[in-house]
Structure formats: structure tokens, C-alpha cells
Nucleic acid binder design. Sequence first.
DNA 1: CCAGACGTTGTT
DNA 2: GTCTGG
DNA 3: CCAGACGTTGTT
DNA 4: GTCTGG
Length: 248
Amino acid sequence: MCYHKSLKVKLEKLAEYYQAEYDKTMSELYGDNPISYHENGFDFKATPIVTAGVPNALQNFNWGLVPFWVKDAAGGTKLRVSTLNCISEEMYDKPSFRDSAKEGKRCLIPSTGFYEWRWMDEKGKTKIPYHIHFKDQELFSIAGLYAKNKNMGTSGDYHSYAVLTTRANTLMTKIHNSKKRMPVIIPKQYEKDWLNPALSKDDVLALCNVVHEIDLDAHTISKRITDKKESSDVPEVLLPHVYEEVRD
DNA sequence: CCAGACGTTGTT
DNA sequence: GTCTGG
DNA sequence: CCAGACGTTGTT
DNA sequence: GTCTGG
């Protein structure tokens, strides 16, 4: 699973990585600051993504996929709580995701890392947060599906996406030791393929498994990440924090 | 037929 | 929009 | 997923 | 302990 991520990079650098344009609204929104240090999926916020539909632009889409058939805002807010993630193995079958999957509405979700908790005991009493990132590259793409809905009560259409998940690779099995899932990550050399709307189902599903060849790294961080009294969207949240009980 | 779901992960 | 359970 | 609540009356 | 809201 993946409900927390970071995008510690400026808009301009994002555009460069994806060879994509962005409009004035977006530059006003983010200015010259990194886009986020910690984003909680349950805030359902919009951040820049790249879609198969418009592969040469950064577009601000909301996390938590609201399918086109949702009839009103109440239905959307209820459903998106459980569509932050999509089990990639089932995306062609689930009512909430299958239309996006079949229509090739795949997207790249720019990320500089994601957060996961590791359980330190059998009883589920102690958990320690980690930030997971690439070993040798700051920015990378998480794979997603997206959709458009007209009934969310927003001024324009409501654009949203879900993070695809897959079986955890070796590193993630260690950290995400109870659920053993992780976001689908698309290496740079496959990004164009992923955004090709004509890609076959078999190829799509195969790309959801390349995570097993990816070299990720992780470090423990402070529990400030879940502190409600202080903002967690600050640079300090990413700093390594040593726990006695973690020996690896 | 109508009403209601449509989802993720999980044992704190 | 489409499927399932009642 | 986590954090926070943990209730009453009313009545389509 | 379990449910709900975010």
C-alpha cells in the first residue's frame, strides 16, 4: 500500500524530467518551493502528474480516484477513501478502476519517495516510520490510473488518480512486513511505454512487476510524520532518525 | 425487480 | 455505468 | 492507513 | 476493542 509520499522537487525541475509544460496557475500554486515533503493521501490533495491523455503537460490531479459514474460529491468523498490505492493485479476487473484501465488512462505520479511503517513486534504495538527512495536518483515515477468526474460540485471537472500497488520487493518486504505491498514504480526507460494508451493488458501487468528489479533505499525517520499538532510537510520530516530497537 | 455497492489493508 | 444481493 | 471517539433524541 | 472520519 501507499498512503504517504513526498515530492521534494521544484516545479521547474519536474517539467524538465518529464519534458512537460505547465501553466501559470500551477507556477503560482507552487512558486519556487519544493512541491511537498510529506503528503498524506487522506487529505485528497492535488499534485502534478503526467497522464497518457496529455503526456506533454503537468496537470494537478487529486489523489483518491473518483470514477466517472459517481453521481454526487457525497458519493465521491465516500468512495475516494478507498481508492487511494488500486491492486494492480485487479485493475481490469474492479468497477471503480476497470474503465480507466481499459481506456488506457494510466499516469505517472512524480515522487521523491514514499513512507511506510514497519512493525517491530508480533502484537502490533510498536511501529517505526521509514522514508523509501531511489538509491541513485532523486525523482522517480509511481504508476497510477486516473479518471474524470463531472458531479463533484467543483467549478470544473474533478480530476483524480489512484496509486497502483503490487507485491513488495525484497527491501519492501522487510519494511512493510505485515502487508507486503508497495507502489508500482516505473523506471525512466519504461515511462513512455506506460503512457502509451495502446499498451496491451499483458504488457501493462508486466510493467507492474518491474519493481522487483529496482534498487531502493530506506531510512527510519521521526514520528513527527504522524504528529497532528505540528505540520509534517516540512524538510525535517525527511531527516534520518535512529531507533534503538532497529537493528535490521 | 430495486437498492446498494463500487475499496484498501488488516488483528495497534 | 454495471453488478450483486435480497 | 492513522487518529480520535467512544452520545442523545428524532423519526423518511 | 471497534468504529468513523480524514
